[in-house]
Computed example of a mutant assay.
Amino acid sequence: MVPYAEDDQEVFDVYGQPPGQQGQPPYGQPPQGPPPPVPPPMGAPVPPQPRKTPKVVLAVIGLAAVVFMGVVGVAIFQNVNGRVSGPLEADHCVDKSFAMDSGSRIPASERVDCDDPKAKAKVLKVTAKRTTAAFGMRSEPDCPEGTDGVTNVTITEGSTAHYEACVRNLEGPHPGDPGAGGALLSVGDCVSDGSFGFGKEKPCTGDDWYGKVIARVESEAACPAQTLETMKLRSFGGNVARPVLCLGPGGGVLANGDCITDPSFAVGGPKKAECDRPTAVAQVVGRVKSTAECPSEATHTMTAEGAFRPVMCLKKLRPTLSEKLRSLGG
């Protein structure tokens, strides 16, 4: 039992030592362990104590080293021989660009990092992934507006597997811009007369285009109200996405207020004429589905079976050659 201290007496534990001094040798025995440090002489500076690096700091440094090595490892993995591995996606880059005269061919390309000097175009949409080389003619892929071309992108060197992708040049010119005259047909582009074949894209800055595309849809029923004529795209390699081109006024497409030349012996339908010229024989006052829809000012009609708006309502300006010949009699 430990007694209580009275007045200035100290409390001793069972070892006979004052509290706070446990571990000291009993009286009369030399101290155990290393000698205590000798205090410096009075006025001398106290030597600095060595600092230990906290374990938390060491752990953070180690983690940073692991992360850094991981990033370097990924970079090395993705850029071996200048190629970038992994699935192709939108906003990735390729080493192929397209010019105005690239036509409808689908060239091969390689995926590269967008910061690589070899990067020429950016992927807008991946339309297909194929495991074997494709030969022959193919249908036009369904690309978004602004597409400058379509390319087969290889990922692994020596492999026939590739991605079919719609791309846009990183720098101009851009064949896919509306009216530019290149790449794939889309809204704002102009086409040639399809009377003797398929409509071909033409630059809208020229004077040899027939109609301007105001919509590209799946069927004629989906064309907007201002559509006057339609063209349908065809392909020898399969179905075409959104094959119907809806054409609005402009070019060779006749609209209200336009005048026509003598249609008596015209090939491919009536042609435009300056209304104040002697060659103009009638003025268009309506393009409708049936003759009953023609306005009262119409004096004649022309019908084209199977056309989007088959009836052309006309107001006569001058007699045609046929009328002149009939007036001769005999």
Rank of each mutant, 00 (worst) to 15 (best):
W209M: 09
S264T: 15
Q21P: 00
Q283M: 14
C93T: 09
L185A: 15
L228H: 06
M312Y: 02
S139D: 11
E145T: 11
M1T: 08
H92I: 02
K272D: 00
G82D: 04
V126F: 05
F68P: 00
V217C: 07
P310A: 04
Q29F: 15
P18D: 03
A304E: 10
S290W: 05
G16E: 04
P295F: 12
G82C: 04
Q9V: 07
R83H: 14
L247R: 02
C294M: 03
G182P: 03
C275A: 05
L247D: 04
G269H: 02
L254V: 04
P249M: 11
A282S: 12
S322Q: 13
V240Q: 05
G199M: 07
P30M: 13
K271S: 14
S195F: 14
P19H: 11
V240H: 06
E297L: 10
A307Y: 02
C190D: 06
K289M: 12
V46K: 06
D258M: 08
S104R: 11
A108F: 13
T303R: 14
R51A: 14
A128S: 14
K55T: 13
P26A: 15
A298D: 00
Q283F: 05
G306F: 10
D276V: 05
V38Y: 11
G211C: 06
G146V: 05
G250S: 03
P50K: 11
V285R: 04
V126G: 09
G33L: 10
R287D: 01
V80E: 13
T227R: 00
V217P: 00
Y4C: 07
P47Y: 10
G176K: 00
P48N: 09
R111Y: 07
Q29M: 15
V66K: 02
V38N: 07
A75T: 05
L314V: 05
H300S: 06
H174E: 09
P310N: 06
D101A: 08
G306T: 04
T279D: 15
G16T: 07
A304Y: 14
P40L: 10
Q29Y: 14
P34I: 07
T127W: 00
E157N: 13
V284N: 03
